[in-house]
Structures are given as C-alpha cells and as structure tokens.
Design a protein around this nucleic acid. Structure first.
Lengths: 221, 221
DNA sequence: AGGCGAGCTTGATCTGCAGCAAATTCAACT
DNA sequence: AGTTGAATTTGCTGCAGATCAAGCTCGCCT
C-alpha cells in the first residue's frame, strides 16, 4: 500500500498544563490502560488532566445503554476541568494513555492571582462550548455522510499528521460520537473511499489518508 | 375547557444583569418585534442581554437553510455574553420581546475587580455548556417522543406557571430545536395527549397543561 | 359577513438509516 | 499451524421519521 505513516507522534501542544498557573503547581504523571475509566459521571471533580499520549473519550449514557460521546481528547488536550463539584460525564481511556494530572484546587488557586490566568480558564470552557454548539448542528441537522466527513476533517486537523492518521477509536466510538450506528459509519467510510476522497488500511482499517479535503469540505455545506 | 392560565407573567429571576457587576454599570432597555434579529452570526459581540419579557431563539444555519436552534431564552435569562469577539450564532426575538442591555466591555470591566464577579461569568458559560451537553445526548440518541417529552419538561420547569404554560415558539421552532420536522413534533404532541400526559388548546395549540409529569419523566429514561 | 393566510393536525407514501446476519481479516492465544 | 475473538465490512430487511398533500381553525383584513 502506498500510505506512509509520519514518525513523530505528538502534535504541537497548546501549552503545558502547569503553564496555566505559572509553572508553580505540582503535576504528576499517570497512565491508564485501554478501556479503563479515568473518572465517572457524578464523581467529585478532584483532578484536572492533560493528555501526553493516547486518547480519551467522554460520554453520557441513557438508562438502557444508549451512549453519546461528547468529545475525544487527544495529546495536548486538557479535560476534567469542570466548574461544578461533580463530573457531568464519564471519561475513559480509548487506548493506553499517559496523562499529566494536577489537583483542581491547586490549579484554580494558582490560576486566580495570575495575570490572565482566569482568562485562560474561561477560554478552555468557551472552547468546549463552541465545540458543543457545532456538534449540536451536526447531530440535529446533518446527514450520515456529512457527519462522517466532518469527523474526518476534525480528526485530520487535530491529529495533523501530514499524510496519514491512525485513529485511536473504533467504528462504534465514532458512531456514538456522530449519533449513528457503527454499520452506517462503516458504509460511509466505504462510500467515501469509492468516491476517492480517502484511503484506509491497517489492522482494523484505522489508518486513514484523506485524498480530497476539498470535496470532504463541500460535504460540510 | 378546564385549563386556567396563571396571571403572573414573570418567573423568579436568577439576578439582575447589573448585579453581575455590582449595580454600577449602565443598563438600558430595548424592545424587539416578533421575528426581528437581535444579533447575527459573525457580528461583533458588543452587548450583553437579559430578557425582561418575551422570548429569543439562538441558532446556526447550514448553507442550504437547515437550521439548528441551540437554545430558547426566556424572561430572566441572559445571553450574548460570548468569550470571543464575534457571535457564534444568530439571535432572534420569537415574540415581542423586551430586554435589558449593557455593553459587554463595561460589564466585563466592572465584573473583573468585584468579589466573585468572575466566578459568576464562568458560571454563566458553564451553564450553557451543561445545557449543550444534555442536548447533544438528546439529539444524538433519543427518539422523537423522548425528545418532545424532554422539551416539555424543560419548558415546564423554566416557564413554571403552576397549571398552564403558553409556549412562545411555533412547532417549527420546536422541531428545529429537537432535530425533527414540525409534523413529527405535532404527532408527538397528539400522541402524548391521547396518552393523557398533557392537554392543549388556545389559538395555535400553544397553551399546554402537563397532566402526568411522572410518565413524561419516564420517557426521559 | 366573507376572504385570506399563518399555524397546526392528520393521512398516505417514501426513504435514510437502523437492525440483523453472515463473511472477512487479523491479532493473540494454545 | 490451528483456534478464538474482536473489529470491520457488506448484504438484506424493516421501521422511525421525513416528505408530500389535504383539510381545519382562528385571527385579521377588507
């Protein structure tokens, strides 16, 4: 196959977790194995996390098991900084994941009396809100093909490996993120491949190369 | 018909707009006629708004006209306080609406050096985020009937007229909020009436009485 | 009073995606 | 090398909700 994987595995990060508070907070590292829970919905918000490597999904469940994934967190992303005292959703490692951790309280304390620190925290929340607003439009009004195209472009931008990206998440995860079934996601992938907008291979077809970002973008309308 | 409307028209408000900054900002009143735009997507964020009476919808559009309503704003609610310099969606008055307005800058300036002022701003953003997260679950994973039940309970809580509420928005607005068509919304209303969970009448069937909140809640799963 | 139009309901039909099932691939075992 | 199981693809069928089309109600106009 003609695909080539980029060797560098981490993308440019939007700032170290500790930088939020001016380096003077204590950060420790931690690792989660594939499929393990980082925190659960309703638990107390004790830590703030930043991904070093790997990937995390955050989601909500209905009582009968239907799942909606809010967002995927990739290397460099922070998560778990919620304003209330309890988490509003569950976070799980999708693959083996290393994170930097700091106590929420010490981060907030250190942030408060730092120039522009509060603005950065507001910025983080706002970024999530903006993502959620765009995702509501996707979930409420886009077709299956449009959703998958939007997903691919989002991942392309965030993983930003020049030629090829390797998705950490399964078709089921993608489906639960896009409000579809895994079969529909799979069919959309195949149909985009047939239309020559992407190629994929690898053990579980997760190695993806976008070959026509222009037409994928058109599907975003 | 046996329905009775409560005469008091405004609900307990979560705080005057000016209270955010400690009363020392200038607020003026303004009114918008039914269907007029308060601000447009992409415009500069110049003002912050609080509804005195009436209702406002905020939405995003796709290029072909498909519309997703993010949220409805009712008396007491604030909106338009976005972190960036431009609005990420459009806001329109659904009915004749009176608002309190203040300049975003003066509010933020006055808020910054006030005890707990910043926390209140973060609280506002967080509240929107929480609403958006719940709405993603609804849009991604709930059935038509579940969506409509959730909508009715949300409005019941927010309009909180003890016996009867009068919805300001049309079936089309509801549909664009719930990711459905107006016909499907109408059928869901009728089916919930047939199941004796609500009654409705009034000129355009917008006067609603919930008669079994328990079973409506069950539909939320 | 009569006509008009906006908003809503209801019926009939259609369709995009869900649901189910079978086949394939590949990693990780024994 | 063979077996097992997880993940994916693909085909077939079914259905929830979309789409199309009347028909109704009520406020508002002349």
């Amino acid at each position: 196959m003609l695909l080539r994987t980029n060797t560098s595995s981490s993308r440019p990060v939007d700032g170290h977790l500790a930088a939020l508070a001016g380096e003077n907070v204590f950060c420790s590292e931690f690792r989660y194995r594939r499929g393990t829970e980082v925190f659960g919905e309703g638990e107390e918000t004790e830590y703030v996390y930043q991904i070093i490597s790997g990937a995390v999904r955050t989601y909500k469940l209905l009582s009968d098991g239907r799942r909606q994934i809010n967002s995927f967190h990739l290397p460099g992303d922070m998560f778990g900084l919620e304003n209330g005292v309890t988490h509003r959703f569950t976070a799980e490692a999708i693959v083996e994941t290393r994170v930097r951790i700091t106590r929420r309280r010490s981060l907030l304390d250190a942030t408060r009396d730092r120039e522009g620190g509060v603005a950065k925290v507001i910025g983080l929340v706002t970024q999530s809100l903006q993502h959620a607003e765009n995702h509501m439009l996707l979930l409420g009004r886009k077709t299956a093909l449009e959703r998958v195209a939007a997903f691919l472009l989002e991942m392309d931008e965030r993983l930003s490996q020049p030629y090829v990206m390797i998705l950490p998440m399964s078709r089921r995860d993608i489906a639960d993120y896009l409000g579809l079934t895994l079969e529909t996601v799979s069919r959309a992938f195949s149909s985009l491949r047939d239309e020559k907008m992407l190629q994929f291979d690898g053990p579980t077809q997760r190695r993806i190369a976008l070959t026509d970002r222009g037409r994928l973008g058109d599907l975003n309308a």
